[in-house]
Amino acid sequence: MTSYIIRRLLYTIPIVFGVLLLTFVLFTLVGGDISIEIAGKGATQETIEEIREEYGLNKPLFLAWDSQFINHFKSALTFDFGRARDREPIIGKIKRGVGPSLALTVPMFFGIVIISVSLALVVASVRGSIWDILAVFICVAGMSIPYLSFILFGQYFLAYKWGLFPVFFSPDLTMAQYVALPVLIGIAAGLGGNLRFYRTVMLDEMRSDYVRTAFAKGLDTKRVLFKHVLKNAMVPIITRVVLAIPFLFLGSLLLERFFGIPGLGYLMIEAISSRDYFVINAMTYISAILFVVFNLITDICYSLVDPRISLE
């Protein structure tokens, strides 16, 4: 297994290089020159030139030791992403945003996984019944409602009308207070799609021979579901669950924006709208690394839950 892990880690080098090259090409070559925009209204050509020098935009793109790409590469490898356009160190911005983002996405993620997997097991065990039909109907309805509607509805009724939660972030509130409603909304909005997916996975397993064998041997439903079906359904569950973890780092754009949670989703969208390539590059790079690492963790988990899968 160790050699497999080392090999996989070595594979990450070309992947990371590819990501760096891609972000550089996209933002530097396709995105265009940002110096005019940074200079602001009524700037002189002299100021624009100075900005180009300050941000290294007057350097060659590739073919030099001090080229823009080499500098981009160096800053990524050393995790020294420099300063954002508002002159704040980018790493400071990321560190500050991780906490609120994870406080929102982690409970949401576990809430969705636990509830949807549990409900999927129950629904799959009563497939074809009125409860199963009702669950599918609710899932489809939930998936059809736009995410924004969940937010607007939740904020208006649960927070404003009924006063159960704060409407928006305030420095006087604790983190638990201001993330509670967005977490609930996130769970409600994410449940439909997840429940349908896990129900399908469970149903596939329920149709397997070993399940019929287990029932034939007289095992009770609970034991069949939790001991056999759940265990055999772990591979698709792990694929979906573990690969979703890196995205937790990116936070939730809409929820963060509507509830004022100062997380990384908000940071990312701000960076995109203001074309702050320095922040976008840093976030993309960190996300890519997390994605590669969690991909590896997924593979390791496969071998742990299914001895038939060999990492060699």
Partner: peptide, 20 residues
């Protein structure tokens, strides 16, 4: 003085109606 950054109109409006 506390300024809260709210880029969406709905929460800002609801906070105003709540007297916050």
């Amino acid at each position: 003085i506390v300024w809260t950054v709210i880029e969406e109109y709905q929460p800002a409006w609801l906070l105003f109606l709540q007297g916050k």
